[in-house]
């Protein structure tokens, strides 16, 4: 089976829960178990929050989300046109954060890496950041 959806929404913290609920309900077509649903919700929340706080620095902007189902695989892309990440490798290290004053734990990318099978981060300063993640759903 293949199926795809995409949406665009404002960079507002209210939309964090909206985005994760949409992704999780789209993924239910694969009959995921509760833990897999939680994993999807968590990674969407992390990526969208990164776009809001870091990408758009809590200012205005649009966030794009695409979900795709291919066989038993769930693919998700979250993209912003924000400030981008200068050093992606460093950003993905545990406990690294550019905003300690906001009490960011520096755990976001670690959760994404741990909970998904695959993650790719494409980013360029002043152009934006795209996070692509995949997970096989066993149900």
């Amino acid at each position: 089976m293949t199926n795809q959806m995409s949406m665009e929404f404002d960079s507002k913290s209210e939309n964090e829960s909206f985005a994760r609920v949409v992704a999780a309900s789209f993924a239910t077509q694969l009959n995921p178990n509760l833990e897999e649903i939680d994993d999807i919700k968590t990674v969407v929340s992390e990526a969208v929050t990164n776009s809001i706080i870091h990408g758009y620095q809590m200012g205005e902007g649009k966030i794009f989300m695409e979900c795709k189902i291919e066989g038993n695989d769930f693919h998700i892309t979250i993209m912003d046109k924000g400030v981008g990440i200068g050093n992606v490798e460093q950003a993905m290290e545990p406990m690294f954060t550019t905003r300690p004053e906001l009490e960011r734990s520096g755990m976001g990318f670690i959760f994404m890496k741990t909970l998904m099978d695959d993650i790719e981060v494409i980013s360029e300063p002043d152009i934006g950041t795209t996070v692509k993640m995949s997970k096989r759903i066993y149900g």
Binding site: S45, M107, G108
Partner: peptide, 13 residues
């Protein structure tokens, strides 16, 4: 029933 890394930062703070 849901918490992400923002919750971790909040507790640590």
């Amino acid at each position: 029933d849901f918490m992400d890394s923002a919750g971790i930062g909040m507790i640590m703070g």
